[in-house]
């Protein structure tokens, strides 16, 4: 698993910033300078609560947001050396669904209800891989089989509404995998699914990662789920990465007050502490109406001091493959030396 950090990353994202103009004349600063690297075969877990900018970050990389109201103000996203944010539309379309597969948060958003599932699978195979109609149909059936849809061949003619919710999600995964992507971006792909179906899909993606060296970005709001899945984790809050680390290091030595509180808010897996209160985080996530000029977590943070309200802490290394954006040194229990 941990073949991370060898060689050049497949995807290298630097300082992406995305904002939205709202009808009322306001601005939402949804993503404020996100950077990360992704290596072949690696799984990066992206964790954060609702509105922290997980989806907008990833949608920005492939310019899948409507512009306007979205506006990608800065940044670079190098896929095998090619900057996705600077590509012309035609080339970008080839990358989407080709080198990069995307599983969207809402299954119905990416399936066209009036086209058969077979057609939706076959078309990209023909345009991206240049397969003949027959070869594309064969591959489409094989893909459905791969994601665990029985009698795949005969289901190609069916329309999305003829599949159950769990099966639709699997069809979407088949579509994202169709062209053997180098990078798969999975936006909460299993939250709407039942536990036993989730387990099936996790199993499948782990296999593809091992067998084909596919790199995966896995977006979720659940720190529990990524513990067993990810090589590295990026924790997001208020449109920023507040902590980024190797998975073991993150759970053994969480540094950011937000990460620490999130982990304490989870019930203990061994059932201990029943009857005790869970640690909860007071207050609400930020509104993001202004470009951040202070720590976005400061209003909810138990350690906040004057500097936190005056300066936005940058992501700074605190160990091998471990970085945190916080003015407070959680291990020492005192503010970091300036």
């Amino acid at each position: 698993m941990a073949q991370a950090a060898n060689g050049r990353p497949v995807l290298s994202v630097r300082d992406v910033r995305t904002r939205f103009r709202t009808p009322g004349g306001g601005v939402v600063h949804a993503v404020n300078g996100i950077s990360f690297d992704l290596h072949a075969g690696e799984l990066l877990g992206v964790v954060g609560e609702s509105g922290s900018g997980k989806s907008v970050t990833m949608l920005s990389l492939l310019r899948l947001l409507p512009e306007p109201p979205a506006e990608i103000a800065a940044g670079q996203a190098l896929l095998e050396g090619e900057d996705l944010l600077a590509l012309e539309p035609a080339r970008l379309r080839r990358v989407r669904g080709g080198k990069v597969g995307f599983i969207f948060q809402d299954p119905m958003a990416s399936l066209n209800p009036v086209l058969s599932v077979g057609y939706q699978l076959v078309e990209p195979l023909r345009t991206h891989l240049g397969l003949s109609r027959r070869a594309a149909r064969r591959r489409a059936a094989a893909l459905l089989e791969l994601v665990g849809i029985p009698a795949a061949e005969s289901r190609l003619r069916d329309f999305p509404h003829q599949f159950s919710g769990g099966m639709r999600q699997r069809v979407m995964i088949a579509m994202a995998l169709a062209c053997d992507p180098k990078v798969l971006i999975a936006d909460e792909p299993t939250t709407a699914l039942d536990a036993t179906i989730q387990a099936q899909i996790l199993d499948l993606l782990q296999r593809l990662r091992r067998e084909r060296g596919m790199a995966i970005v896995w977006i979720t709001h659940d720190l529990g789920v990524v513990a067993g899945l990810a090589d590295r984790v990026m924790v997001m809050y208020g449109g920023q990465a507040v902590e980024r680390a190797d998975v073991r290091s993150l759970y053994a030595r969480p540094q950011h007050p937000y990460t620490r509180s999130l982990l304490r808010a989870l019930p203990r897996p061994d059932g201990g502490g029943r009857g005790e209160r869970l640690a909860s985080i007071p207050g609400q996530p930020p509104i993001l109406g202004r470009a951040p000029d202070s720590c976005p977590f400061a209003p909810r943070c138990a350690h906040a001091f004057a500097r936190c309200r005056e300066q936005n802490p940058p992501l700074a290394p605190v160990g091998a493959d471990h970085a945190v954006a916080c003015w407070f040194d959680a291990d020492a229990g005192v503010p970091r030396a300036a």
């Binding site: 665990g148 989730q198 067993g228 989870l266």
Partner: peptide, 19 residues
């Protein structure tokens, strides 16, 4: 299939995958 938020434990565990 219940996640445990403990990478060490997760690495050892076997999931029962239903068909």
């Amino acid at each position: 299939a219940v996640p445990t938020h403990d990478p060490e434990r997760e690495a050892r565990r076997t999931r029962i995958i239903l068909e």
